[in-house]
Design a protein around this nucleic acid. Structure first.
Lengths: 126, 126
DNA sequence: TCTTGACTTGGAGTCAACTCCAAGTGCTAT
DNA sequence: ATAGCACTTGGAGTTGACTCCAAGTCAAGA
């Protein structure tokens, strides 16, 4: 699969795909004899994983570390487990924060909906 | 309340508090006759709101817009309602993404936990 | 009064994560 | 075989959100 196809499939720029590879967020991608990227099934799995982690807001740095450990071999399995568990913890925390903010927005929105009918917003400061 | 007290209360640097005010993410803070910040109840509400929105990952830009509308008066109530509803939509989307990533991590972690016992990870590519 | 320390400002610097660019290479269709 | 286009690289530029700094001000205690 060419870089163009991958970029279209995942709605991500070619520049970003090259950037992910350059910084080590995914392992080096398979190339044609001419040096052109030709993403294999496995390369695609890495791309998909990277996009998934990034879209949840996890740092590029953590994926770089994960790939580094992965390429070091099976002895790093406990370290990888720890890394993934840490990131899950961060996401659970982040989700709590988002839920709190959604709740707050729900409250404000309900008050604004009433205000839209009356044309005036009562008591709250902000 | 002084900037020092506010920064300690919310575990945020004084620099960040001044930055929030400077860019208009919160309205201008009450000052003493000598020009020193003296946060009122209302100022504190704004700070708290700003911190809440930021901790969920919403952009500074949107709070600037909200404050701008707020200061324009009651005619902007429908616009503010729209703005808040849009941000809620973004957060709901973001939460979905986080949930998907947590699910993915759960799966990987469970596989790694098995691998830690056997010392070897079977089949998966990454 | 003089010093100390917390405050003020405007502006510059940093960091993560892209995003863009220039110069060069190589497949493909006419 | 040559024009055109998609690809390559290394490196520079951009954006958002802080974070730091220098120079100055002000209130309070020795």
């Amino acid at each position: 699969m060419t870089i163009k196809e991958v970029s279209e499939k995942h709605e991500i720029t070619q520049d970003t795909l090259r950037y992910y590879e350059r910084v080590g967020m995914i392992p080096p991608v398979t190339r044609t004899s001419g040096g052109i990227r030709n993403y294999s099934e496995e390369d695609l799995s890495w791309v998909e994983l990277a996009i998934c982690m990034r879209s949840a807001g996890l740092p590029v740095e953590m994926m770089i570390e994960y790939v580094r450990l992965f390429r070091e071999g099976d002895t790093t399995i406990p370290a990888r487990l720890q890394l993934l568990a840490d990131q899950r913890e961060i996401l659970l925390e982040q989700r709590k924060q988002i839920d709190a903010t959604i709740e707050r927005l729900n409250y404000k929105i309900s008050r604004y909906e009433i205000a839209v009918k009356t044309g005036k917003l009562t008591w709250e400061k902000c």
